[in-house]
Computed example of a mutant assay.
Amino acid sequence: MAGTLIDGKLIAKKVRGDIQKRVDKLKEKGVTPGLAVVLVGHDPASQAYVGMKEKTCIKLGIHSEVYRLAEETTQEELLGLITKLNNDPKINGILVQLPLPKHIDEGKVLDTIDPEKDVDGFHSINVGNLVIGKDAFVPCTPYGVIVMLEESGVELTGKHVVVVGRSNIVGKPVATLALQRHATVTIAHSRTKNLPEITRQADILIVAVGRANMITKEMVREGTVVIDVGINRVETGLVGDVDFEGVKEVAAQITPVPGGVGPMTITMLMHNTVLSAERR
């Protein structure tokens, strides 16, 4: 029997409805939330993501500024722009689209963003605060995953959550968020021995490795909730890190790709931007 689909578009629509009410309330007080997005270079995927963010801002009535910089932009020029945006009262959130060109130090750039405007949640202060359980901006994709689970009625307390992938952007923060909700958490990665043995222990399996169809039906126990964060372009189109057709036969609930986690990432970016405006 095929598992129930966790519809990211539907959940994102509901969450955006709540965000819209918060934007309207701020505007009644004379405050318009503002998001600045900085793109360096001409990566097609990054350009598409930036376009979607801009479009979503406009729909929700959030002030949007997009800075498209040349590939050869120096680190000093980029840091100068970020400093200017840090001091701009119209801007509540700053997002620098990753990846950056190789000649630019990503860590230095992210740590130059004002932590109170770091709506991507990548500044060292926000990362540290998240880990120790203090108030922090939460990275958008992991945050979206947790909201999806909550909206789908999936309880994390006491559950075994297996996260495949240990990136700073998804793997580590989503593991931290699950731990904060009283789950038992295992992080698996490229050096993990007997990966299928680990993944079959999961009540909730979250996969974020960037390898098409890596998780197969044989690696998933019947009744598991499966969240596929991966998005990979193959000859037939876009696929996740999970072999959807196979795994849906054993999963209790599963996210599709596309239309699963993706819509939640931009939604939580909008949430963080509005939250920043509410705090000022």
Rank of each mutant, 00 (worst) to 15 (best):
L100G: 06
L81D: 05
V154K: 09
G158W: 11
S124K: 15
E151T: 05
G80A: 03
K90V: 10
G121W: 00
E155W: 07
I113N: 00
I82Y: 11
P139A: 11
R166F: 00
S167N: 08
G165Q: 02
D114A: 12
L79Q: 07
T157H: 15
G121E: 00
L78D: 08
P101N: 10
G121L: 01
G158D: 10
D120P: 02
I82W: 12
E150L: 11
Y143R: 15
I94P: 05
L149V: 09
V174R: 10
L149N: 10
S167I: 09
V161T: 14
K108E: 14
G165V: 02
V174F: 08
V162N: 10
N87I: 03
L156N: 07
I132V: 14
L85P: 07
K90T: 13
V127L: 13
V109F: 04
G153Q: 10
G80L: 11
H103K: 12
K102P: 14
E150I: 03
V164K: 03
I125W: 04
H160G: 09
K102F: 09
D118P: 02
I94E: 06
V119C: 05
K159D: 13
L81Q: 07
L81G: 01
D118M: 01
G128M: 01
E151C: 05
N168Y: 13
E77L: 04
A175G: 15
L149C: 09
N126W: 03
K134N: 14
I169K: 02
G80H: 10
G107N: 14
R166G: 00
I104N: 05
G128S: 05
G121M: 01
F122P: 00
G133M: 03
G107K: 11
T157R: 15
V131N: 08
K84N: 11
K172R: 15
L156W: 04
D114G: 06
V163S: 09
N92K: 05
I125Y: 09
H103S: 09
V170G: 09
D114S: 12
P89N: 13
T157K: 15
N87G: 15
T176G: 06
G107C: 02
V96D: 07
E116L: 14
I125D: 03
Y143N: 15
D111Q: 02
G93W: 05
P89V: 08
T83V: 12
V164T: 00
V162W: 07
K134M: 12
L98F: 07
G93N: 11
H160I: 08
K102M: 12
P173T: 06
P115Y: 07
V162I: 12
L81E: 05
D120Y: 04
L130Y: 03
I91H: 10
V163Y: 06
K159S: 15
V170K: 04
D105L: 01
I146W: 06
V96A: 11
L110K: 00
G171A: 01
I94S: 08
D105N: 15
T112P: 00
G93I: 06
